[in-house]
Design a binder for these strands. Structure first.
Lengths: 210, 210
DNA sequence: TAGATTGTTAATCGATTAACAATC
DNA sequence: TAGATTGTTAATCGATTAACAATC
């Protein structure tokens, strides 16, 4: 019941389930078993049942799960009713791509502010999002009550910008830089290290085969 | 000694170690202890020693590790001497950003071919990389002996394109689509689900605090 | 030798999954 | 009732880490 007790591994799978349930809903399917779901999302059926059971008995024995009620339940759990505003820091190549990426599409997330040092784009609208000078970072985060930022600045700027964001009350950072950021305990950092992903993939290919 | 026996979790950390060793080398530091390294890369020192020990006794008791020899050792392990060519499939927003991302910078990876359906860019050079029509995917992968692809196509095209890539002999796929790709056992898929990362981050923030 | 730090043992932890009783 | 599928138990697995003997 309490989200406190949900294992990390389970929490990471919730959006996967949610997304697929949406697809099922759109298809008009009203019922799904853990075995079918397992096939689709490539997670063991026992793991799925275990995951769901953290939230109570969501299914019916001998029947499976009701798509619609499961969907609306996960919608609550994942806070999908309201839009969460996030800020993007660093409008370079990758930052620009993420601005366009449109997390909003089937998610609950919208990039509502961007920050950069580049005078050519500062104080303008880029892809529908206002770009503020990075000097205003802490101030604007507070003002707009933004608690999550996406960090796509050069490595050299990463820690400095992070400190500013922390000063601005940030709670979560999606970090695309290869720097391991130093942050207070209360701040959550999720690293997405693209170079790493690619290198690890190549390493596995060359050394395993699988 | 044999890469076969290296745990996945260890393999995933190797590029992190490698990158930081490069920084140390550039700084002119010639020696590092597991404790110092732990501080920098945010991995427990015992885990670091355990990780290194899979490759033999790389350190000196009472001294620590020699940066240069560790560096050249990892360079070998990670195949960093030669450049690995990869292909990018789907030159949309994200694909374009990754073309510019320059994995080459401090890695061993170069995007040497791109594929798309868009006539406006097909058969042209984009950011220094030739863009081929996606119909030639299997053929070109074989011809250029490319075994790794980055997949940044729309979800609806993902499985079809994947099948073509598999026909072209692909061994690894860095998958940026939310689709769970069906591939033969011999093919390795690494999923990078940006929407998921962001949603999970927000979920943790709202439900934990940490 | 004295001090430091490795490499490894053993305990612990979190996550996965086979198996099956409960039950719709 | 018979058939199906959940929810949960218990075993297993992979990864982490405290602790310390080995040793430079």
């Amino acid at each position: 019941m309490t989200a406190e007790n949900i294992p990390r591994a389970t929490a990471k799978r919730l959006p996967i389930y949610y997304r697929y349930l949406n697809i099922l809903h759109d298809t008009g399917k009203s019922r799904i078993s853990s075995t079918e779901l397992a096939e689709a999302v490539q997670v063991d059926s026992a793991t799925i049942r275990r995951d769901f059971s953290y939230f109570g008995a969501l299914g019916k024995r001998g029947y499976g799960y009701d798509v619609d009620s499961l969907l609306s339940f996960f919608k609550q759990i994942l806070n999908q009713e309201h839009l969460t505003n996030v800020a993007l820091i660093g409008v370079g190549n990758l930052g620009h791509a993420l601005l366009n990426f449109n997390f909003h599409k089937d998610g609950n997330v919208r990039i509502s502010a961007a920050f950069d040092t580049n005078d050519a784009i500062v104080n303008k609208i880029q892809d529908g999002v206002p770009v503020y000078p990075i000097t205003e970072l802490a101030h604007q985060l507070k003002e707009q009550q933004i608690q999550v930022v996406i960090l796509t600045v050069p490595s050299s700027a990463a820690q400095g910008v992070t400190d500013d964001a922390v000063a601005g009350g940030v709670k979560g950072i999606l970090n695309f830089t290869p720097i391991r950021l130093a942050v207070p305990d209360a701040v959550l950092v999720q690293n997405v290290d693209l170079t790493n992903e690619l290198q690890t993939l190549i390493y596995f290919i060359e050394n395993f085969g699988k």
